[in-house]
């Protein structure tokens, strides 16, 4: 994010669930990024190999359609503005699941 004309890195907590947890063998990681989605994905990929490929749609520059990606409990696909991460944000990522 920009602060007084300078880029400031933010820390974001990321939690994986269901098959993503099994695949990545990790429940939770913390990543540093500049606040934008692509920076977040790059940073995440450096800690969790393959995450960018699984989660990021390179053409649309957005979260892949089949993934449920919550930023502080809100589905980013319902956000009208582009994603901007803040320090201390929580991201929860789920593959397609259901129940009831």
């Amino acid at each position: 994010m920009m602060l007084n004309g300078c880029y400031v890195m933010v820390k974001v907590k990321v939690r994986f669930y269901a098959s993503l947890r099994d695949k990545y063998k990790v429940k939770e990681v913390e990543v540093d990024c500049d606040g934008g989605l692509e920076s977040f994905m790059d940073s995440l990929d450096s800690k969790v190999k393959g995450a960018r490929r699984d989660l990021f749609d390179n053409e649309k520059k957005s979260v892949k359609e089949n993934m449920i990606f919550l930023l502080n409990g809100i589905n980013v696909k319902n956000m009208k503005e582009p994603i901007k991460f803040k320090d201390g944000d929580l991201v929860s990522i789920f593959p397609p699941i259901a129940g009831g």
Partner: peptide, 12 residues
């Protein structure tokens, strides 16, 4: 999703 985890996967 459902075959692997069943319905309780909804908790989280």
């Amino acid at each position: 999703g459902l075959p692997t985890y069943g319905t309780a996967i909804l908790v989280n």
